[in-house]
Amino acid sequence: MNYHWNWGIFGEQVKGGGETYLDWLITGLGWTLAVSLTAWVLALVIGIAVGALRTAPSRPIALLGTAWVELFRNVPLLVQMFLWFFVVPEFLPREWSLWVKQDMPAKEFVTAALCLGFFTSARVAEQVRAGVGSLPRGQRDAALALGFTLPQAYRHILLPQALRIVIPPLTSEFMNVFKNSSIAFAIGVMELTFQARQMQEDSEQGIETYLAVTLLYFICAFTANRGMAWIEARTRVPGLIARTS
């Protein structure tokens, strides 16, 4: 075991010159944040909608929601990345397909964010469904009896309660988004894992590189966790048994 440690590596110029390794990692962090946050917003919007659909009284609509969840849950995320990146453009009309392949700006980023967003939406939908399911029946019945339409009952009565109940599981989903964004390296998004592999090959200081990148992932997940804990504390439903921390 004779590893040559060099902690100064981050300040050194990359082999091609012009940038330091630190610049690479900062770029990587930027893309990781961009992919994760975009995907999270998408996942919340779609996930809440699909989760609500799954609890709808109409059977075909609930089935549609189930199909959505099963589709995204049963194919590995990496394969889904490849599907969105290589396969989906082939199924578009010819002009769109050409535009996507040749001219679309930040193609890798858009694909990765869409893919991760849809993937996570299926998991958010499951949590939202559980949240709506955990509410007493009377909530829905009372809302309908008061003259709310079904969409209004969801908008004003059911979802505001359900979402606040499922914040703890959503917190771990939010942390998962940062972890899962690492898979975007496979379609060429220059995020942290991509930079880690590139820097390891270029500098041959693998351990320092991976330690730094791992630390950055830790910080992302930790920040996400604290942020969600703050929201959880602010939005707690009064009168329910909940952890007070």
Binding site: M1, Y3, F178, F185, G206, Y210
Partner: peptide
């Protein structure tokens, strides 16, 4: 549980040869 799996895979691939020689 807090490290992305891809990073764990890369870590082991890098470190195992150092440990086994």
């Amino acid at each position: 549980r807090s490290i992305p799996l891809v990073m764990v895979i890369l870590w082991f691939f890098l470190v195992i040869p150092f440990l086994t020689g």
